[in-house]
């Protein structure tokens, strides 16, 4: 990177940390540190909700998915607005009016302490793990750019978030989220502009989208009823409804964001902000990947975007095989480029028959390229240097580093790192809150001073930050990162949602019923995950339904026995 890029990166990072630390003065009491004394305006809480989800995984993994797979992934978010309405009507008023710090605290009032502690523990495990995956995405990028060790890189990314979260609490997290969201949006549109401006003369954005469509990348809707297919209209509207209700309604990293709002209605409005903007924002993220693909239809891309793996293949025992693949790739690229140019020309001439002919030629060229790429990736895996190798996460960083002007590279690296930082900050803050409120204060020191709890909360934030770094190094080996995070969640989310459904919608549900139901729900998910090929999104439905059915049955028996 150029010195100017480094200057932008360092200056903004220092400013973000400094500004976070300035807010320490408002965070000297427990409700100030964890809930900002419920003083955050709805729009800031809403941006914070969105920023916590929009991680570096979105910037790297999802844009990469847009490149390789197109817009299909957007189906995953179809249920989100519906989930926001459901939660605004149901759980939000319960949480807000009960004055709790954590979502799980509410469960003790409704059921018992074991149900609260167990759900909170599940949150700590799943969110702690996903926090690691969130760190690993930018760690991969920085290790690519700087040639640093992955662990050192993960620490470099996590430390700023730990510092301002430790000292500034939720105030620092929320207001930093607002600033970072602006940087991310500017960064996303800068990449889109670079990809579009990089198209050859005579090829417009309409032609680009037409080329993308010829390769299936604008195919958004898949109405097949295949339960093993990860992203279909049905999994996105039914199964994902359960996931989003659980994520936004029972995951402390989200609940804590809107508990800081000034009133119940402001908390609701902060959630509805995501309902309006999440799908359009994800479309922008995926379209970015699609347009980078179109850019590389006309500008020669590397055979593999991972420069480290390319270098290994070029210099190792695989050198001759790789050289042959590169030659084949070059031929396939020229064929596809000529077909794409032909498609643009046919569109300009409004020649329907030629358009269809060229669309078919683009499809064939793309299939040839994908074939060579798959063999190159297989070569990496067979060479033993990375047996789980996936090139998806290297696409966007490579485009940024090689095709954006000086200054913008720094801005984009900043956007990626800060996207991770604000997500990590929000998650560390919520992990610390659940650790202290649901365990330390509940079981070990119920009557200590606010000062004591604050000190312990800061230590907990630091410890969770270190834990995230450890998981990050492991998660980087698991392939496309976006799916890693969702897989972690799906093992618990549906079951935890089931417990909250029992709490709110089943008046006769008892603590024993909820607890046994929760165990049954997790067992059901484990069984489905182990012995069937059902897509992970549907596991949320399985978990929630199992908890409600078993929980209701056991509650009925429990009440009968007591009578």
């Amino acid at each position: 990177m150029h010195a100017l890029d480094w200057a932008i990166l360092v200056a903004f990072t220092v400013w973000i940390v400094y500004d976070g630390l300035r807010r320490t003065k408002d965070s000297r009491e427990l409700d100030g540190y964890f809930l900002a004394k419920r003083s955050i305006p709805w729009w800031a809480a809403g941006i914070s909700v969105m920023a916590t989800q929009l991680s570096a995984i979105t910037m790297i993994g999802t844009t990469g998915q847009g490149y390789t797979d197109g817009l299909r992934f957007i189906q995953f978010y179809f249920a989100l607005p519906i989930a926001m309405i459901v939660l605004s009507v149901t759980l939000v008023p319960f949480f807000y009016k009960s004055g709790v710090y954590t979502a799980y605290e509410y469960l003790e009032g409704r059921f018992d302490s074991k149900t609260r502690s167990f759900t909170s523990l599940l949150f700590l495990v799943s969110r702690g793990m996903s926090c690691g995956a969130v760190v690993s995405a930018p760690a991969v990028v920085l290790s690519l750019v700087l040639g640093w060790d992955l662990t050192a890189t993960a620490l470099t990314i996590t430390v700023p978030a730990v510092i301002y979260t430790m000292f500034g609490g939720v105030q620092a997290v929320t207001w930093t989220d607002v600033k970072i969201m602006v940087i991310i949006i500017v960064g996303l549109f800068a990449v889109i502009a670079a990809a579009v401006l990089g198209l050859p003369p005579g090829v417009g954005i309409g032609d680009g989208l037409s080329i993308a469509a010829a390769t299936g990348r604008l195919r958004t809707f898949d109405f097949s009823l295949d339960l093993t297919n990860q992203y279909t209209f049905w999994s996105g509207t039914i199964a994902a409804l359960f996931l989003f209700c659980s994520y936004f309604g029972t995951d402390q990293s989200q609940v804590q964001r809107y508990l800081t709002a000034r009133s119940v209605d402001e908390a609701r409005h902060s959630l509805l902000m995501s309902a309006y903007w999440k799908i359009p924002l994800q479309v922008v993220v995926l379209i970015l990947g699609v347009l980078v693909f179109v850019f590389y239809v006309f500008t020669p891309p590397p055979l593999l975007f991972s420069s480290v793996q390319t270098e290994r293949l070029r210099t190792g025992a695989t050198a001759s095989s790789y050289e042959a693949l590169e030659r084949e790739f070059q031929t396939a690229f020229e064929t596809r480029r000529a077909a794409a140019q032909g498609l643009a020309d046919a569109r300009a001439a409004r020649d329907r028959a030629a358009i269809e002919r060229q669309q078919e030629a683009v499809r064939q060229g793309e299939a040839a390229i994908q074939g060579v790429r798959s063999r190159a990736a297989a070569l990496v895996r067979e060479s033993g240097s990375d047996r789980q190798f996936s090139d998806v996460n290297y696409i966007t960083p490579t485009f940024i580093l090689t095709h954006l002007p000086v200054g913008f590279v720094g801005l984009l690296m900043l956007a990626i790192i800060m996207a991770a930082t604000d997500t990590i900050a929000g998650e560390l803050n919520s992990l610390s809150t659940a650790t202290i409120i649901d365990f330390y204060k509940r079981w070990w020191r119920p009557a200590a001073s606010d000062g004591h709890y604050l000190a312990v909360s800061k230590i907990a934030t630091g410890v969770w930050g270190l834990f995230a770094c450890g998981v990050a190094v492991w998660a980087a080996e698991l392939g496309s990162l976006i799916e890693v995070v969702n897989r972690f969640g799906s093992f618990f989310y549906g079951s935890i949602l089931g417990v909250f459904i029992l709490a709110v919608a089943v008046p006769f549900a008892t603590g024993n019923g909820a607890f046994i139901g929760l165990i049954a729900g997790m067992g059901s998910v484990a069984w489905v995950a182990s012995f069937t090929r059902v897509a992970f999104l549907w596991q949320n439905v399985v978990g929630a339904v199992a908890v409600v059915i078993v929980g209701a049955l056991v509650s009925g028996i429990d009440r009968a026995v007591r009578r």
Binding site: V89, A213, R219, F221, H269, Y276
Partner: peptide, 30 residues
């Protein structure tokens, strides 16, 4: 109708329009 209910209806309208726009994009370029 309360202000919150009006907000929910607006969300549903925007949601339907967004999905329709995505479908139109898919069909227009196919």
């Amino acid at each position: 109708m309360s202000e919150m209910r009006r907000s929910y209806v607006r969300v549903l309208v925007v949601w339907a329009l967004t999905l329709a726009a995505l479908y139109a994009l898919q069909e227009f370029f196919s």
